[in-house]
């Protein structure tokens, strides 16, 4: 029996947790999120290189929360999501138990925020090299070229909102795009409606995105939406010295004023 299965069975038996959000075998060679509540279900847990989904989004799903105390198999992106959610008062310290998969096949148990913060301090949380290359290529484009690139991508958008649904940071009960008095964003999936929606979403994730890439993975139309939010990571770091999802008590860069904030953006 794998260490993961043994650990989860133990956690369930001693009632440390009531449900464990992990990975199981899906259909057509896919991996899917599973919600383990019994030892029998725990036997079906797996962990391998294909288990990449950031499961932290499920921590705020009403019907999952109702199952009881949560445990989660948390990769780096999920740990950072937890820190960001904590800083936005969405989860409390000690409320969620995280099992982190180490490279050597063992699992580290994180039961409080300070241990996660300490771990993240020693971890590379940068953007993956392949994705960084794409961002560099985008940044090298002229404004017009970049505008054309994104317009072409957004043409494909059908506004299924899979990006928003998959994003652990998109938890608003009523998203700006769904507000109709006043109507900020056109509902239609036409040129303006698509552009407004994606720009609004990117702005709302500036300084909050933990670069997990779930938005792009979820998109059925293969739009590289992650590049949009990734491009905002560096400017926020350079301007405010802030990186999302590192500290549970972080204050949000874009809603905080400090006397020594740079004001070079004011024309």
């Amino acid at each position: 029996m794998s260490e993961l299965i043994k650990t989860v069975i133990q956690l369930l038996e001693d009632k440390t947790i009531n449900v464990f959000i992990g990975y199981g075998k899906g259909t057509a060679n896919r991996i899917r999120a599973t919600f383990t509540r019994t030892a029998e279900q725990a036997e079906l847990l797996i962990y391998n290189d294909a288990c990449t989904q950031n499961l932290a989004g499920y921590l705020l799903k009403h019907e999952v929360k109702k199952l009881g105390k949560l445990g989660i198999l948390a990769n780096v992106a999920a740990l950072r999501s937890m820190m960001q959610l904590a800083s936005e008062f969405q989860i409390k310290d000690g409320e969620v138990l995280a099992l982190f998969p180490n490279a050597d096949g063992t699992f580290t148990e994180f039961t409080n925020f300070s241990s996660i913060e300490a771990y993240l301090e020693t971890t590379d949380v940068g953007i993956k090299s392949g994705e960084q290359e794409l961002i560099t290529r985008l940044e090298a484009m002229s404004v017009k070229e970049r505008w054309l690139f994104w317009n072409k991508e957004f043409e494909k958008c059908i506004k299924c909102y899979a990006c928003r649904a998959a994003c652990p940071m998109c938890y608003c009960h009523r998203c700006t795009t769904d507000v109709n008095i006043p109507q900020w964003i056109p509902v239609a999936s036409h040129e303006i409606g698509n552009l407004d929606y994606h720009l609004m979403r990117a702005m709302h994730l500036a300084g909050r995105c933990v670069n997990c890439g779930e938005c792009a993975n979820a998109c059925p139309m293969d739009i590289p939406l992650n590049l949009l939010t990734y491009q905002l990571i560096q400017p926020i770091q350079e301007t405010f010295g802030a990186t999302a999802g590192m500290k549970a008590d972080a204050v949000y860069a874009l809603s905080t004023y400090k006397p020594d904030d740079k004001e070079n953006f004011i024309i």
């Binding site: 599973t34 919600f35 999952v64 909102y161 998959a166 059925p220």
Partner: peptide, 10 residues
């Protein structure tokens, strides 16, 4: 059946 459903419209 739907615990893992994230509620998008894909």
């Amino acid at each position: 059946q739907s615990l893992r459903c994230i509620g998008c419209g894909a």
